[in-house]
Amino acid sequence: MIIYDKNNAIILDIQADDTSYRYRAIKQGDKVYLYFSLTEHIEIPTYSYIDFQGQRYTLWKPENLTKHGERNLEYTVVFDGWWELLNRTKYKLLSGKPHKLKFPLTAKPRMFMQLLIDNLNLHDSGWTLGTCIDASEKALAFNHESCMEVINRFADEWNTEFEFVGKTVNFGKVERFKDDPLPLSYGKGNGFKIGLGRQNQGEKAPVTILYVQGGDRNIDVAAYGSSTLLLPKSQELEYQADAIRLMPMVCLSHVPIGN
């Protein structure tokens, strides 16, 4: 891996450890984590960069360095994609001088997003708005927020997502490989594709049985046969091809697998 400084001069040409990796997630980040060791100290200044798989990643914060001996220095260097600039750029109203950091605005997603692009191009260049959803207007207020905080607000407001392709920002649901999906299977002998994995989200146990207790208002117990409202019997509700059988239960709770 070749590391360049901000003037395009080569700083290092190193063999990164096998533990090095790139992390990409929708609405969460695009980073390259480089782990390597050197026999002497070499400073890697901020704004140094690497090119990996056709994308540029920049060092925005000083590297982490651990000295294990006189000739054993361990480096952890995190290179971020272009969208780190959104954390460093305030979302401002640019229609007058001085620019306002606290202001209300009513608009559709495209106008909000175009203002974000204009703010990025104030201090950088080459930012463009790609695809953008067409949705109803919203009245939003801003108060000294970064562009990253704002774009996450937009995604929540319109229940959608965003992605960065270089310096092009797409605002809308992110879909990939619809015409060529990756087949997966689960079970012994059916491993995932290399690099994929599974992990639990938090410590909360999954819901295995849903217990429902209905209300007790306006019920004639003698005629209805129960003091609380029951779900319909012997019926199924289908949602996205997964059949959910409705059954009368007595309380609302969740039970760990195995109980």
Rank of each mutant, 00 (worst) to 15 (best):
I2Y: 00
Y4L: 11
D5S: 05
I11Y: 00
A16V: 15
D18K: 14
T19L: 12
S20D: 07
S20K: 04
Y23P: 00
I26F: 00
K27R: 15
D30M: 03
K31H: 06
Y33G: 06
Y33V: 15
Y35M: 03
S37A: 15
L38S: 04
T39F: 11
Y47E: 11
S48Y: 01
D51L: 11
F52D: 06
R56E: 03
Y57E: 01
T58N: 03
L59H: 03
W60Y: 15
P62G: 06
P62H: 06
N64V: 08
T66R: 12
R71N: 14
R71E: 11
N72D: 12
L73F: 13
T76A: 04
D80R: 09
D80N: 12
R88I: 05
K92A: 14
S95R: 07
K97Y: 10
K97E: 14
P98V: 11
K102P: 03
K102Q: 15
L105C: 08
A107V: 10
P109A: 05
M111Y: 01
M111S: 06
F112P: 05
F112N: 05
Q114K: 09
L116D: 09
D118V: 01
H123Q: 05
D124C: 01
G126E: 04
L129N: 03
T131L: 06
C132F: 05
I133W: 04
S136H: 09
E137L: 11
K138V: 11
A139L: 09
H144I: 12
S146G: 10
M148E: 07
I151W: 08
R153P: 00
D156S: 14
D156G: 13
E157S: 14
T160G: 07
E161D: 14
K167H: 04
V169W: 06
R176M: 10
D179G: 14
L182A: 05
L184M: 12
G187Y: 06
G187Q: 04
K188Q: 13
N190A: 13
F192A: 09
K193Q: 04
G195L: 09
L196G: 00
R198T: 13
Q201I: 13
G202N: 02
E203W: 02
T208Q: 05
V212T: 10
R217V: 12
I219E: 13
A222W: 04
Y224C: 03
G225Y: 01
T228H: 14
L230H: 01
P232M: 12
K233D: 06
S234E: 13
E236G: 05
L237S: 05
Q240E: 14
D242H: 06
M247T: 13
M247A: 08
P248T: 10
P248S: 08
S253W: 02
P256T: 02
P256Y: 00
I257L: 08
G258R: 04
